[in-house]
Amino acid sequence: MERILSTWAGLSSHFIGECFDTAKPYLDQQFEGMDPYVRFVSAQLFIDCHLSSESSLILVRESKEWDADMINRSVMEGTIKYVFLMSGGASEVREKAFEYWEQLPNFSAIRHHDRALSFLNEVSNPDDPEWIPFKKLLLTQEEIDSLRNGTNKKDRSLLEQKWSFSEITKNFAQSESGGLKLLSHLAHGYGMSSHLIHKDGDGVGMVWERYGRNEIEQSAVKLGHCARIVSDACSFSKLRLFQLLRFCGQETDIIQDIEKRYDLLFDELGKAGKNFAQVEYGQELKK
């Protein structure tokens, strides 16, 4: 088991690394084929998703698939937002980059201010040096007005909804693009991983249920779970690269060329998935 997971994690890390290397020229600040502001925002989100993907694969290697799944959920959301960001004409994409990088963080800064102010009003020693980090979050009314930039509560709510995972996937479901429509179905996996993040009864129950199985079932389910995480990490990496290349007017065939070099990895991941299905649903499959 350890050898298999280590091999999968190592090969997939190289795969997403090749995808990242292919993307680097279009993320570099010297690249002139994209609006500089859009390129900057695009690069930050692309890089962050890649780094988190690496973290997820490290956890798979260490047999920590449940924690890897939670990080993968973050990568899923980041990838969906990346596709959304880089979809549309140049002016539309620049507007979305501004919303993502400036407007939404500005609204968050106001919420941080409100929470910090509420906390400092409750403690008996608000001037104590240990609360300096909270004081750093406080804003003047002038700063708050500037961050709101003339928007009202409804405007802010609509923009935040626009950038939510559920709204973006809903938008994709209504798209004329078959590829984007398929992405809308990621909502199921996103919701299942939410149980793990929130430590609700469903999430804790999934972990508990697995450890109650016999050794053969545990092994099949664990490998199937890890295979899905690794496969997802690779798929999200391909998707971000595809969207970047397409936006830059570049051919995307290079993604298939990279993928072919890792046929063995994807074959093994597929076998693990099929084995899980056989162990989990064998009787039903025979019907």
Results as ranks from 00 to 15, higher is better:
residue 185 H to T: 15
residue 177 S to Q: 01
residue 269 L to W: 08
residue 256 Q to V: 12
residue 131 W to D: 00
residue 177 S to K: 01
residue 273 G to H: 08
residue 184 S to F: 06
residue 8 W to M: 05
residue 272 A to Q: 14
residue 197 I to D: 10
residue 221 V to D: 15
residue 205 G to H: 11
residue 161 Q to W: 13
residue 42 S to E: 03
residue 173 A to V: 00
residue 2 E to N: 14
residue 147 L to E: 03
residue 255 I to W: 02
residue 42 S to I: 06
residue 183 L to K: 04
residue 71 I to L: 15
residue 54 E to V: 11
residue 95 E to D: 10
residue 46 F to Q: 01
residue 283 Q to I: 05
residue 68 A to T: 00
residue 129 P to L: 07
residue 278 Q to S: 13
residue 81 K to E: 03
residue 99 E to H: 10
residue 39 R to T: 06
residue 286 K to A: 14
residue 211 Y to E: 08
residue 275 N to S: 05
residue 280 E to H: 11
residue 56 S to K: 02
residue 263 D to S: 15
residue 66 W to T: 03
residue 8 W to V: 03
residue 215 E to G: 01
residue 155 D to S: 05
residue 80 I to A: 14
residue 235 S to D: 13
residue 190 Y to T: 05
residue 208 W to C: 02
residue 115 R to P: 00
residue 227 A to P: 04
residue 211 Y to F: 15
residue 86 M to W: 00
residue 6 S to G: 04
residue 247 F to R: 12
residue 165 F to N: 04
residue 61 R to K: 15
residue 80 I to D: 04
residue 2 E to Q: 12
residue 250 Q to M: 14
residue 108 S to Y: 08
residue 240 R to K: 09
residue 175 S to C: 06
residue 100 Y to M: 11
residue 189 G to W: 03
residue 96 K to D: 12
residue 60 V to Q: 01
residue 43 A to W: 00
residue 270 G to V: 00
residue 134 F to I: 08
residue 29 Q to E: 08
residue 74 S to T: 11
residue 191 G to A: 12
residue 189 G to H: 09
